[in-house]
Design a protein around this nucleic acid. Structure first.
Lengths: 191, 191
DNA sequence: AAATCCACTTGACAAAAGGCAAGAATTAAA
DNA sequence: TTTAATTCTTGCCTTTTGTCAAGTGGATTT
C-alpha cells in the first residue's frame, strides 16, 4: 500500500543528494495511516511527528478567544505536515492537526529527525528548505489578506489548490480565508 | 561605538552554549551602520546579509500590483534582520529592507553563515531557532488579521511594540495593519 | 517669506463584510 | 424511515472599511 518511493522523490525534489542517500533517509521513516477526522496532533500535546503526507488532505486549526474553530492551514499531498512551533520548541501545541480525508504517509520523531540531521549532513538542507518553504507560504498568505478582498482570496485558493475546495467543508475554508460562513456562501453564489 | 557584547548576549539567549563559544561566533560578525532611510536590501538583489540589529528600527516592504508600498514587517532592536527567501534560496528579492532610524549592528554573509554552521554545530540550533521564531511571528500575524478588527490590531501593536508607533510614519503602519491611511487616522482619533 | 512638498486629517458617500435568525439541504443517527 | 444534527443558504439590517477629494499643518527649499 504505502509507497516509500514517493517520499524518495519528494526528498530529491527538495535537495540535491544521491538517490542512494535519499533511499537511506526515506527508510528511517515509518509508514502510518490516519482515518478521516482523526488527529495527528491535539491541543496541549507536544508534537512528535514529522510527517510526510503521501495521500489525503489535512488541516491545522485552533480555537480563538470566542471559542470558534479557526482553520490555520491546509496540507495537500506531497508535503511535510507538522506543527513547527510545538515540534521544534518542544512545547505544548495550541493547535490540532486533523485528517480531512483518509491520509497515508511516513513519519519520524523529533529524536529520529535529529539523528538524521547528524548522520546525513545533506539532509539538514532539506530541513531548512522545508522551514523556509513554510515561512514563505505564511508570508504570502499575509500578503493576500492585506491586498485582496475575500472574493479574490477565494478565487486564488480555487485556482491554486482546487482539491481543498473539493473535500473541505465550507466552514473550514471560510475561517481559513478570514470570513464568516455566510459571506463565503454569498461569494460563491456570485461566481 | 559598536558593542559586540550585546550580540553575544543575544546568542546566549537563543541557544545554550558556552560564553566562550558565543564570543567566537560573535567575533566572526562585522560591524555595520545604516543611515536613516538607507537600504540593507533592494528589490532584485540577492540578499547576502544576516544582520543582527543592535540599535535602531527597520522595516521590509514591497510594492503590490497597484504599485502601492506595503510594509511587510518591522524589526526592532535585538533581532536578526534578513530576507529569508532571498537569503536562503539565493534568489532575487522582491522586497526592500530599509532603516527607519539610524541603525547599528553586525552582519555576516551567506557564505560566512554556512561556515559557522559547519564549524560550530551548536550554532545550527541558533539558525533554526531564528527561522522558527520568524515563522511563529508570521503565523500569529495571520491569526490577528483573521480574528481582529483593524482597531484591535492597532491596539495590539501599540501594546506589544510601542517603539514602532513612535518612529514609523502612519502610512507604514497602516499598510502593515492592512488598512488605508484614512482608516488608521480615524481609528487613532477614537482612542 | 513664499512656494512647495509631504504626512496626516476629515467629510460625504460607497462597498465589503458581519450579525442574527429563519429556512433548505444534506448527512448521520436512532 | 423517521428523527435529529449538521451544514449551507438567504434576507434584513448594522458595522467596518474603502474611495475620493479637499483641507490642515509642518518641514524644507528657494
Amino acid at each position: 500500500m504505502n509507497n516509500r518511493e514517493s517520499l524518495v522523490n519528494f526528498i530529491l525534489s527538495v535537495v540535491k543528494i544521491s538517490r542512494d542517500e535519499a533511499d537511506q533517509i526515506a527508510n528511517t521513516f515509518h509508514p502510518i495511516e490516519i482515518e478521516e477526522k482523526d488527529y495527528l496532533l491535539r491541543e496541549n500535546e507536544i508534537s512528535d511527528d514529522y510527517f510526510y503526507l503521501e495521500s489525503g488532505l489535512m488541516r491545522t486549526f485552533l480555537y480563538n478567544l470566542e471559542g470558534e474553530e479557526i482553520t490555520i492551514d491546509f496540507f495537500t499531498e506531497n508535503n511535510i505536515v507538522f506543527e513547527i512551533t510545538s515540534f521544534f520548541n518542544r512545547i505544548r501545541s495550541e493547535a490540532y492537526i486533523q485528517a480531512i480525508t483518509k491520509c497515508k504517509g511516513f513519519r519520524i520523531s523529533y529524536e529520529e529527525l535529529n539523528t538524521l540531521f547528524h548522520d546525513k549532513p545533506a539532509f539538514r538542507d532539506f530541513g531548512r528548505a522545508i522551514l523556509v518553504k513554510e515561512f514563505i507560504a505564511s508570508q504570502s498568505r499575509n500578503f493576500g489578506m492585506i491586498n485582496r478582498t475575500a472574493k479574490e482570496r477565494y478565487q486564488n485558493l480555487l485556482s491554486i489548490e482546487p482539491q481543498i475546495l473539493q473535500y473541505a467543508p465550507l466552514k473550514y475554508i471560510a475561517s481559513y480565508l478570514g470570513v464568516t460562513d455566510s459571506t463565503l456562501s454569498r461569494l460563491r453564489k456570485k461566481m
